[in-house]
């Protein structure tokens, strides 16, 4: 059987990790919420740079739903951008 002190130590460690993960995730979700309706600049692979109005993101951060996407060949009213294509996106608070 496992000594009680070791078991409770493991539980404490697990709870600490859960606490940190929650804090990091909550802060990230708040950040994503704050981008709503803001002008964002996407810096993408292959030196592609585009501007759009940010709409929303799925919770797995696989897709960004945007409006008024200024592509090199014109404006696309509504679009989905794959996060795999993105290096970073920038906006002002």
């Amino acid at each position: 059987s496992i000594p009680t002190s070791a078991a409770s130590h493991d539980t404490e460690q697990l709870q600490e990790e859960q606490r940190v993960r929650s804090m990091l995730r909550e802060n990230f979700l708040r950040c994503l919420l704050s981008v709503n309706n803001k002008k964002v600049h996407f810096h993408m692979l292959e030196k592609v740079n585009v501007e759009a109005t940010f709409g929303s993101s799925d919770i797995d951060v696989l897709n960004f739903q945007v409006s008024d996407l200024h592509t090199p060949i014109g404006v696309q009213k509504e679009a989905l951008i794959r996060s795999r294509d993105v290096i970073s996106f920038t906006f002002d608070l």
């Binding site: 799925d58 919770i59 739903q65 989905l80 951008i81």
Partner: peptide, 18 residues
């Protein structure tokens, strides 16, 4: 958040770019 995303996609029917 997922609800907002799903609702926006239903409403606006965005296509992938590129």
């Amino acid at each position: 958040m997922q609800l907002t995303f799903d609702r926006n996609c239903d409403l606006k029917q965005p296509n992938y770019w590129p």
